[in-house]
Computed example of a mutant assay.
Amino acid sequence: MNNVKDLNKWANAHSYFTLDLLRIALGVFLFVKGVKFITNIQYLVELISPIDKIGGGMFLVHYITPAHMIGGIMIAFGLLTRWAIIAQLPILMGAILVNFMGEMHTENLFLALGILAICLFFLVYGSGKHSADYYFKMSQ
C-alpha cells in the first residue's frame, strides 16, 4: 500500500497537463474502440477467431466491449485509472497475441503495442492531478 501512495505522491509532484491530455485521449480511444466493436460484432468475432480455438469466444466478446467502453470512460475522467487499466491489459495482450496466431496485421500490432505501452505507463504513473481521483482525494 505504501508503494501506491509513494507513486501517487511522485506523480502529483511531477504532473503535467500534456500527460493528462494523453490519459484523456487514451480513454476516448478505448471508448471509441468499444463502440466500434459493439456496433460491428462480426468484426470483433473475426478478430478473435484465432484465439477462439482455445475456447471462450462468447466470453471474450462480452468482456472486450464493456471493458473498453467503461474502462475508457474511467480512464478519461481519471477515476480508478489503475484498476481500469488492469482490466485493459489482458485485452491488449490478446490483441498482440492474435497477430501472431492468425493473419499478421502490422498496423493493428503496432497500435496494440503502442496502447499497451501507454497503459503500462499510466499503470505506474496513475491518473495525475487533473483527475477525479485527485479531486475526491483532496475533497476529503
Rank of each mutant, 00 (worst) to 15 (best):
V61C: 12
P66Y: 01
K137P: 06
E46G: 11
S49E: 03
L30C: 14
N8Q: 12
V32E: 07
I48T: 08
A25K: 05
V35P: 00
L30I: 07
H105E: 15
L21P: 01
Y125E: 01
L97I: 04
E46D: 10
F122H: 00
L123C: 08
G94H: 00
E46M: 09
I85F: 02
F136S: 02
F100D: 14
G128H: 00
D20R: 08
L47F: 15
L30T: 14
G55K: 01
I118K: 02
N2Y: 09
A11W: 04
G128C: 07
H105W: 03
R23V: 05
L89N: 07
L97M: 13
F136W: 13
D6T: 14
D52I: 11
I54R: 04
L80C: 06
M104G: 05
V32A: 13
C119P: 13
N2M: 08
W83V: 10
I91G: 03
L19E: 07
A87S: 15
S127K: 01
K9R: 04
M101C: 11
Y134T: 04
K137F: 03
I86N: 06
W10L: 15
C119E: 13
I96T: 06
N2D: 10
N2F: 13
F17Y: 04
T81E: 11
E46W: 10
K137D: 02
M93S: 10
H14D: 15
L79F: 12
H14Q: 08
G78N: 06
G71C: 08
N108Q: 03
N12D: 13
I85R: 04
G27V: 04
N2C: 02
L79E: 03
F122S: 00
K9M: 00
I51D: 13
I38E: 05
A67L: 15
G72Y: 09
G34S: 08
V45A: 15
A87M: 11
T81L: 12
H68S: 12
Q140I: 11
K33N: 13
F136H: 11
I38W: 14
K36A: 12
I73V: 15
L111F: 05
I41D: 05
G27I: 02
D52K: 13
D133C: 10
E107N: 14
Q140M: 07
I118P: 01
F77W: 09
A11Q: 01
N8L: 11
P50L: 14
A95N: 10
A67C: 15
V32F: 02
F77D: 05
G27Q: 01
M58I: 12
H68I: 03
G34L: 09
L97E: 02
L92A: 11
A95F: 10
R23D: 00
A112S: 11
G57S: 15
K137Y: 04
K129P: 03
I24C: 03
I24Q: 00
A67W: 06
F122P: 01
F17H: 01
M58T: 11
V61Q: 13
D52E: 13
F31A: 12
